[in-house]
Amino acid sequence: MSEAFRDRIDITLTVNGEPVEARVASGQHLTDFLRLELGLTGAHASCEHGVCGACTVEVDGAPIRGCLMLAPQADGAEVWTVEGLTDTAAIQDLQEAFVAKNALQCGFCTPGMLVAAKDLLSRGGIPSRQEIREHMSGNYCRCTGYEAIVDAVETVAQARAGRGAA
């Protein structure tokens, strides 16, 4: 790591609705910042090169790979992790559907999956199964084979659209 990465930078941001001020190493990525500095261990470090999606969190309303964003880049941002989305019940129906459909096994990919699914569902309407599959393809799961995840997202989309039951 070059010396530049060691420089420490002051940042101010909102995480899960709470104000956060911190002095971070300029080379620390957002996932490590959330996990190591704030104790928010819901987002997971897995591939750390932006492929698997296990670290997906919401930054300014969009799903973001926490491993591809440096903590200093989050200065001024509004960040939501699975912990905050749980506390505010923003994805409660999605979480219940994941449990009901057994759309998780080991659970390591799940927080990222939920953020990705939230993004798709926020667009409204009822996406087709293939659209759900395409949208969720940035998030790897090695346990489920994906079908139950597609089922869960589809169920919530239908329920939110007022057709079918959650």
Binding site: L40, T41, G42, F98, V99, L104, G107, F108, T110, L114
Partner: peptide, 9 residues
């Protein structure tokens, strides 16, 4: 499962 979907693993 409830714990894992809340990021409480």
């Amino acid at each position: 499962a409830g714990r894992l979907v809340q990021g409480r693993g």
